[in-house]
Simulated assay, not measured.
Amino acid sequence: MTCAFAAQNGKLTGSLRNDALTLDEHQVAFLKPVNTIETVLAEQPDEDADEDLEANRKWAARLSVTLRAAVARLRAHQWPAATGESVDGLVAELEAAREHWARAAVAGDADAFWEHYDPGFDALTPDLGAKARGALGLRDARPGKQGGPSVGGATPTATATATSTAVVPSTGSGTAA
């Protein structure tokens, strides 16, 4: 199998790897807590609070705890001077969201849950932490949107195509079968 990568605009440079081995300590310290938030957000119950209040309260409680832990981890890290202000801004957003999710977690009825649901989600913007990601040299836009460079310089518009090639197994004697 041979893979080829092409860019819709510009030239691709850098590694295609996008894992912890290509990240510095600050990038990892940022991504680990932020990724846990996105994981919990994706676990939102299928039924809304009008249909299953208890499941939604439990999810809101998990999200509140996750936000608290993320804030603690982000505050505990020693950020480079150029990044600190943008991380502080993100921490403020996360704290505002956490307050709403904590209240949604103890809501007595669906109306009280919804009262905190919208402001809780509004505080977790689609570009959550974009300024900090950019300051850390990470992609500052979600995949599929135009933005700054991703890790390694590959752009989110890069596409891969694969073609098959014949592979001749070795017989172990140094000659092809």
Score class of each variant (00 low, 15 high):
85 E>K: 05
39 T>K: 11
83 T>P: 00
115 E>M: 14
51 E>S: 15
169 P>G: 07
170 S>M: 05
157 T>R: 14
90 L>W: 01
26 H>E: 09
137 G>S: 08
91 V>N: 02
131 K>V: 05
63 L>E: 06
160 A>R: 14
169 P>M: 01
37 I>R: 00
149 P>W: 11
10 G>R: 06
10 G>E: 00
78 Q>H: 06
69 A>N: 07
128 L>M: 04
111 D>Q: 05
76 A>S: 11
52 D>N: 07
117 Y>C: 10
157 T>V: 07
152 G>C: 01
23 L>H: 09
60 A>P: 00
85 E>W: 05
158 A>G: 13
89 G>C: 05
47 E>R: 07
58 K>E: 05
43 E>S: 06
29 A>H: 02
128 L>F: 11
83 T>N: 04
136 L>D: 08
4 A>M: 07
26 H>F: 02
176 A>T: 03
104 A>T: 00
99 E>K: 08
100 H>M: 07
38 E>G: 15
9 N>H: 15
9 N>A: 14
31 L>Q: 12
18 N>K: 03
81 A>V: 10
35 N>D: 01
147 G>N: 01
96 A>Q: 14
147 G>C: 04
48 D>F: 03
6 A>E: 08
72 A>E: 01
4 A>E: 13
168 V>K: 11
175 T>S: 08
170 S>V: 10
74 L>V: 03
11 K>N: 08
158 A>Q: 04
146 Q>I: 05
72 A>D: 04
132 A>G: 02
85 E>T: 11
77 H>S: 13
51 E>T: 10
37 I>E: 04
13 T>L: 13
67 L>W: 11
13 T>A: 11
160 A>Y: 13
57 R>Q: 06
119 P>D: 15
132 A>N: 03
25 E>V: 04
28 V>K: 10
54 E>R: 13
123 A>Q: 10
16 L>N: 04
133 R>T: 06
105 A>T: 00
25 E>N: 01
77 H>Q: 14
69 A>S: 06
140 D>K: 08
171 T>W: 06
129 G>D: 09
138 L>V: 03
7 A>W: 12
47 E>I: 09
173 S>N: 14
118 D>H: 07
108 G>D: 08
72 A>W: 06
164 S>Y: 13
31 L>K: 05
93 E>H: 07
7 A>P: 15
3 C>I: 15
12 L>D: 04
28 V>N: 13
78 Q>P: 14
125 T>H: 01
17 R>T: 00
8 Q>M: 00
25 E>L: 13
28 V>D: 11
122 D>C: 10
25 E>H: 06
106 V>M: 02
175 T>R: 09
137 G>M: 13
